[in-house]
């Protein structure tokens, strides 16, 4: 491996590190939400600063790499992809923090557990964690065969979002005293839905990096 390749590998290792941190933030957010664990939520909020600083570091190192090594072809696509993936990961990190604040602020302390189950939030977390983890795997292995499979999972996220939104709407109408909590839960599932979109964007970036194909805005699920 020559010097240039070593530097490129460092960039890749760095984004993988950030990726793993964001996945761990989400796993914690899932547990904290389902168990209403304020301590864990506080830990997530604290760790978010690390995600932000990693984004800045990745961005700066990508800029330096472009300036010093003039990458072309697959190397250029990798650096461009890493820059965009880091933006998406940072945004996903923000969502994890948002969920943590939902718990810290005790927005829905007295909400019915049955409602939470009906909203399939746990399942939504599961699908999303699966998407973002599998995206990391294909990035690391540099193998895009399963990219479409990952992208398709966003459909399931959108289905749950739509269903949960409607369920919460009727819940709030029937239980006006819980309206604030209902609204906060809508915001929370909206965050999860956006998380799905960002995971999709990340997979698209990986396909751009490895196959030089642009999937964006092309009806990727058809």
């Amino acid at each position: 491996m020559n010097h240039k390749e070593e530097e490129l590998k460092l960039l890749k290792d760095e984004i993988i590190q950030m990726w793993k941190l964001v996945i761990s933030q989400l796993e914690k957010a899932k547990i904290a939400f389902l168990t209403n664990d304020v301590e864990l939520a506080l830990e997530i909020a604290q760790t978010e600063k690390r995600v932000n600083s990693m984004e800045l570091k990745v961005e700066r190192n990508c800029e330096n790499y472009i300036a010093l090594y003039n990458p072309v072809a697959i190397d250029l696509r990798l650096v461009l992809s890493i820059m965009k993936i880091s933006i998406s990961l940072e945004r996903i990190g923000d969502y994890a923090e948002g969920i943590a604040h939902h718990i810290i602020d005790r927005d829905c302390n007295n909400i019915d557990n049955e409602l939470i189950e009906e909203l399939e939030i746990e399942k939504m977390f599961g699908v999303l964690l699966n998407m973002i983890t599998n995206a990391l795997v294909i990035f690391d292995l540099e193998e895009t065969k399963s990219s479409r499979k990952i992208l398709k999972k966003d459909k399931e996220v959108n289905r749950i979002y739509k269903m949960a939104f409607e369920r919460l709407e009727s819940y709030v109408l029937k239980n006006p005293k819980d309206a604030l909590c209902g609204l906060k839960l809508i915001l929370l599932i909206r965050k999860l839905e956006r998380f799905g979109d960002h995971s999709g964007n990340i997979v698209e970036e990986i396909v751009f990096f490895l196959d030089a194909k642009v999937l964006k805005h092309k009806g990727k699920l058809e």
Binding site: N2, K4, P71, V72, A73, I74
Partner: peptide, 8 residues
């Protein structure tokens, strides 16, 4: 081509 232009 890729190996050449990327310096590999």
């Amino acid at each position: 081509t890729q190996n050449y232009i990327t310096g590999r």
